[in-house]
Structure formats: C-alpha cells, structure tokens
Amino acid sequence: MLDIVIDTRCHDLGGFEVGRVLPFRARRMVGPFIFFDRMGPAQMPPGIPRETDVRPHPHIGLSTITYLFEGEMTHRDSTGVEQVIRPGALNWMTAGRGISHSERFDGLRERGGPMDGIQAWVALPTEDEETAPDFAHHPAGALPEFGEGGLSARLIAGEAYGLRSPARTRSPLFYVHAELADGARMGLPEGHAERAVYVARGEVEVGGVRYPEGKMLVFRGGVAPTLTAVGATRLMLLGGEPVGARHIWWNFVSSRRDRIEQAKADWAAGRIPLPPMDRDTFIPLPEAQAQAPTPNPMS
C-alpha cells in the first residue's frame, strides 16, 4: 500500500525551525510537488530580529504555494505585489521565467505570536516553464470546504472530492488541508497518479500502523487507503500527475540543466529584478554551494 514513508529533516534558520520533507533522496517528487517545507511550529517573541526574515531571492520554473495554520507573513515580489499572508488563505506565486520575492515577519515582529505553516513548490509543465511571473491571493473564504463526522477540510488547490479550487494550476493536482477529530476517517482523492499525506499534527492510522507528526506517507498508485485519526489530527493531502524529471539547485527548478546555469548567471548579474518595495538587501547566489544541488532550507 505504501511506497515510502519520509521523515522530516529539521533546519534551524537562526531561531526559526524549518522541516524539509521534499525533495528526498529516494523520492524527489509527488506528482508535480517538488518541494515541501514545514515552517514551525514556533512561538515568535516581539522584536524578533530582521535576520529571521527571508530576504529577496529568485526562483524559476515553479510555483510556490504558501499556506499558514497560524501566524502572519508579508510577501513582496518583483511584479510589485505586497500581500500579508494569514491562516487559511492560498498564496500562489508563479515564477516562470524569473521572479524574486521576500517573506518577512513584519506583523509578528511588532506583537509576537505563533507561526506555523507549509510552503510547497510545484514544478511547472515544460511548456509553461518560461511563462510570465505572477502572484494570486485567495482568501480562506474563497476556497471550497467540506466535511462530516468529525472531518473538516479545505481544498487549497486543484481538484478533489468533486470540488475545484479557484486557483489557476497548470497541471492536474490536488492540495487539501484536513482537520480530523479522534477516530474520524477519510480517504485519499481518486483519479490522481501520485498521492501522499503529510501528518502536520497528531497521528494517523493506515493499515493498522500509526504514523506521528512529521511523517509523509507516499502511496502506490491504484490503492484506496483509509486514513483514521488518532486524537485530534491535522493532515495535508497532496499529489497529481507527474510533469517529468526536474533539476533543482537552490531556488531554481527546470527540465534543463543549462537553464539553471543561466538563472544562476542572471541572479549574479542582477538581471532578475528585486521587489520594488524590498530592494535594499537580497540573498546572494550561494557560490559555496555551487557543487551541491540542493535548495535553500526555506524558499
């Protein structure tokens, strides 16, 4: 039934912990999902240093999906968008041929508070890798919700359970946030080639085995598992159709290795613009990592 179980690997970003799930050495992608990071959970004190923020940095060939359970972040990007990100909303940024953005804790810096969420990346189909950069915000109330019998869920993106999210996606996928009471059950969406579940809180039982927080369960195609909550449980369900093999280096994703080399040169030469409202500082190209093709701990 299970193809692989992936453990979260933790990174400390100067007082803020991030947990990497995808990519994993034995499983690079699930459908088009090529990156999956847990941001927190953490309690941010008032007056947190600006070094905790994620300064402007570039992307190509992907869309980022930022979704919060708690807390607040301010997104600024090179298309001129400034958007405060709050729990339950979908924030979908398409890098395409090149974008830069920052993620800053402006609101939490003032008052402090909890921070917890997920940032995922989906690789763009080959024909869309050079599309124009774009950003779309969908508030929580605009996303389809469903549930019964101790289950409450929100369809963040794509199609699942007969519902469709308003977000524009460029390949077939699904992304669901589910809250389950103790003993509540749900199945995975049907009709998708690759599917996985991330346990964000509590425990889930599958096939008589319990899996705690921090595990991602990737299922074989064609199976119909039942997910049963053990205690109050939070799940993120994700998957879709594969888009083909991808190269990934730092914040760059592409079907072509030479395109990543071009993106590295473009960022080093300043050919990818900075956000108009956040251009005083940026993350330089990590030359010391030039021989290690792994992305940043946080996008």
Rank of each mutant, 00 (worst) to 15 (best):
A265P: 00
P212A: 14
S255T: 13
S255W: 08
L235W: 01
P284D: 10
V218F: 06
S299A: 15
A292S: 11
R234N: 03
E203H: 13
R201H: 14
V253A: 06
V230S: 15
A292K: 09
P293E: 12
S254P: 11
M298S: 05
G244A: 06
F252Q: 01
I260L: 10
L227P: 10
A265Q: 12
Y198C: 02
D278R: 06
Q291T: 14
V197W: 05
A268T: 10
M298V: 14
L285K: 00
P273K: 06
R246Q: 12
A232W: 05
P293G: 08
W250G: 09
R195E: 08
Q262A: 14
P297N: 05
T281Y: 14
S255P: 09
L235R: 05
G208T: 08
V204F: 05
S254D: 00
G202S: 13
M216I: 04
T294L: 14
Y198R: 01
T294D: 09
G240V: 04
A269D: 15
A292M: 11
Y198H: 14
D278Q: 08
L235I: 11
E261Y: 00
R271A: 10
K264P: 01
V223P: 03
R201C: 02
V204G: 04
L237E: 02
P225K: 00
G231K: 06
D278M: 07
T226Y: 04
P212W: 13
G240S: 08
A193I: 05
L274Q: 03
P225G: 01
R279A: 14
S299T: 08
A269R: 06
W267I: 00
G214S: 04
A196W: 04
E261N: 04
G231R: 11
E213G: 08
G244P: 07
R195V: 12
R271V: 03
A229K: 06
P286I: 02
T281A: 15
R210K: 12
L235F: 04
V197I: 13
E287V: 07
L217E: 04
G214M: 07
A269G: 11
S255C: 09
P225V: 03
V243Y: 03
G208C: 10
G221D: 14
E205H: 01
M216H: 00
F252K: 03
N251W: 07
L237G: 01
P225F: 01
N296E: 11
V223C: 07
V218S: 08
E241Y: 01
R234I: 12
L235N: 02
G221H: 14
G191N: 13
P293H: 12
E205S: 08
R256S: 05
Y198G: 01
V223G: 09
R259W: 06
P212N: 14
W250Q: 09
P293V: 05
G231L: 09
T233D: 11
L217N: 01
D266V: 00
V230I: 15
R256Y: 00
V243D: 00
I272W: 04
I272L: 15
V206M: 03
S254C: 13
S254T: 06
Q289A: 15
E261L: 09
L285F: 12
P242M: 02
R257A: 14
S299V: 12
P284K: 04
R210E: 13
R195H: 08
E241F: 02
F219N: 02
R220L: 10
A224Q: 09
A290F: 06
Q289P: 00
R195F: 11
W249T: 00
P242T: 06
W267F: 03
